[in-house]
Amino acid sequence: MLHLLKKAPAMPALLLSSDSPKLREAYNRIRTNLDARLRGIACPVVGVSSPGEGEGAAACCENLAVSFARLGRRVLLIDADLRAEVPPALLSRPEGGLCERLAGEQVLPLSVEVCDTLWILPRGHAEGNPTDLLGGPAFLQVLRSLAEGYDMMFVSLPSVNGYADACAASSAMSGMVLAVAAGYTDRRRAADALNALYNVRATLLGTVAVDR
């Protein structure tokens, strides 16, 4: 019952719009740790999810992409959270995106003005079941076709406990990062999420704790 009293964490700060040195340093550290874990993988694809809704996975994914892009890497940020009612600000574009690409259309990623080495692929207009779209061979094929032009890719995924999308998509990922909101994420739900990813043999790269 106590979780009902807890307020969902506010939208975490984004690297693109924040000048906070603390935030920058925190993501530099996460980037370094993640980079070490992805060493030797050509164009790694990193999926970012969280145990539940509103735990900062989308912001974490965006910030990780920006952080790697600032290092000079060519980074593609893909919005595969087809369940969210409103996409993150950076990925909120009216143009077609991932869903159209999954349908066979040649939709190209969009560049981001403020960051030369960052590209984005919005979610597009979903038709059909998101789990089927992300768990099917088309998704893996799209990622492979995109891999040629980038050094790494970050995929924003829906919550693990809420939907099967993240588990279904995890097989196409080089590794998964789980974002947890300190003081908000329930221990049992975190365990459920870890178990769910473990059961589908997902490669777990680590967790990112978002302080409240």
């Binding site: 300190a182 994420t185 365990a191 790269l205």
Partner: peptide, 30 residues
Amino acid sequence: TLRRGEEAEDYAAWLPLLGTVPNEREGEEA
């Protein structure tokens, strides 16, 4: 709930904590 990043790491000892994002919100000044 998991209260801190360290607790998350302690909770699932086999899964490394990549880092902790400080408590800053969208729109806050540095």
